[in-house]
Design a protein around this nucleic acid. Sequence first.
DNA 1: GGTGATAAGTTATCAGTGATAGATTATCGC
DNA 2: GCGATAATCTATCACTGATAACTTATCACC
Lengths: 211, 211
Amino acid sequence: MKSPQVRSPRKPKGQGAERREEILDAALRLFSEGDVHTVSTRQIAEAAGISQPALYAYFATKDDLIAELCVRAFARLKARMDDGRARWTPTPEMFDRAMMTYIDFALSEPDAYRVAFMVEKSHDGSFLARTGGRPMAAGMEAFQGFVAMIADLHAAGLTHDDDPLRLTQTLWAGLHGLVSLLIARSEFPWIERETLIAGHIAMLRRGALKG
Amino acid sequence: MKSPQVRSPRKPKGQGAERREEILDAALRLFSEGDVHTVSTRQIAEAAGISQPALYAYFATKDDLIAELCVRAFARLKARMDDGRARWTPTPEMFDRAMMTYIDFALSEPDAYRVAFMVEKSHDGSFLARTGGRPMAAGMEAFQGFVAMIADLHAAGLTHDDDPLRLTQTLWAGLHGLVSLLIARSEFPWIERETLIAGHIAMLRRGALKG
DNA sequence: GGTGATAAGTTATCAGTGATAGATTATCGC
DNA sequence: GCGATAATCTATCACTGATAACTTATCACC
């Protein structure tokens, strides 16, 4: 697959933002076939139909490009969770639905989820420090809706844990553990996926809610 | 920190295995200060006191070196879990202890845990395919002890879930979610760590066990 | 105690990476 | 048409993982 790839036409004067989108799309598409480090800026540029240095007119570094994908993934997750919250009431059934919404998002957009949650950005000099707190801020915003939901359940007297923030962090971890392993270790001999997910949600519900 | 680093003395004839250990030690030490991709083979070689190409006498590729660290991390996890199983009885208290053992391992050896569980090795051409199933096999072995424990609890009639394998996978995911986020997203505004861990284990116990 | 075999290590080099400098070209308002 | 500038290119840099080809220390043996 070494298609020479047609150069896309030069953008008219004010259309830089459009090219930016094309680059991000191309990058996310490529990231689905290999991790962030094995995809090169040259591959991204070729897929976007431009030369490699042209990328740097739109993103200061490769990490910045990734950070932008990260922000957008968080935004989409937040949108989905907010969607669910529209017809939300603090009941066990809705709890299950909310958990399912998160899992659905991760498994239906595994590449976005990987970029947002599973790219190593831990240590000082690297990713997070240089990209400012932008992805982090976006992540926090997505998290807030989750916090509010659990607070509702707590206020309705449905939770075991008397600290709703602790419960939220604990549930988030529980969800992330399942989807991140399903995404990153798909070759593991998992039991049938839907059965596993149903069981997982049931366990989280029993662990979190009374009755 | 650009120490020229004294070259370590040449090993006598049969001592190649010893140098191999030195390389692995040096690599794991470096991986604690940056992710696997930002640490170069030249840095590893310098830390081990040899030239960069000399690495390739001991490991076919950098991925193979990482795979070896992965195998060893799984082995240490298995050792710790087996340790705990020595005085194991299927009770809720011991359940808590087992969960704690896993979390303790991950948080006391975060670098090993990261290499073992959090290095992207998803897609075809890359890591897993080329390193054979060795890390995977080591991982499965560590997992088996876990399976046996949950099966004990199930046999004792203590579990909610009627499928012990499903419960095992679900609990593992629950544990992994917490420790992987604590390790990779340490900058997140977590509540106090011990409180969080205690709450997490309590939630998992309620979700998994009756009463 | 010299001799060849070979393990252990070297230097030099390769193609590919992220990133930068500086020249070039298309599009715009006038 | 004209100057300004956004959009882009080619050429290049230092560094990466990896390989080839050469050197040197250590060994068993006569």
